[in-house]
Amino acid sequence: MQTAVIVFPASNCDRDAATALEKLTGKAPRMVWHNDPIIPDDVRFVVVPGGFSYGDYLRSGAIAANSPVIQDLKRKAEAGLPVLGICNGFQILTEARMLPGALMRNTNQKFVCRISRLRLANAKTRFTKRYDAKNEIDIPVAHHDGNFFADDDTLRRIEGNGQVVFRYVDNPNGSRNDIAGIVNEAGNVLGMMPHPERAVDKLHGGTDGIPLFKSILESL
């Protein structure tokens, strides 16, 4: 199964994502540079990784959202290609309007770096069906701008549609409704602040990220 990781200047979780994908698919992902106008046609799943693309200049993810590769990603995602945006990748997907809302500065002003416990708000998505909805999972967070905001109407809409996928048990950043991750309406684009690619090996301290990758890869 061919997967891909998008690489921006100052991405720093691209190799973590690649390692996780290779471990779970047995095949190295294509590393697609931000200036490439096209994501190769054999790619069936794309990860937009964490980091500080373009130094977080202007707003986290704002410049990356306008890069050539994201224009192609948008077209392909609209045609159904599954996409996972992690941390800075989530910020990029909201800035690109591929997901609703925005990620703002954490309310406590601190960079938060720790294991976060998550509840499955929707265990029926293509990204979560391998999880037991009753179980809480431990996935690391590491961000300064993870405070999810959407206006009241948008919040009602995404809650009503079951687009909220993960919630923090102990909200580390002030996110509205404790939201840690959401999918688009079609269900093929997931954005989340926690890092599932950092929870796929016992040496990571936990493996709760594995069912997420397995869920989406099995759905292809």
């Binding site: 707003r59 410049i63 306008n66 609703p100 925005a102 703002m104």
Partner: peptide, 9 residues
């Protein structure tokens, strides 16, 4: 609209 402001917030 395209870049300088994120009109969501």
């Amino acid at each position: 609209e395209k870049l300088l402001a994120n009109t969501v917030i």
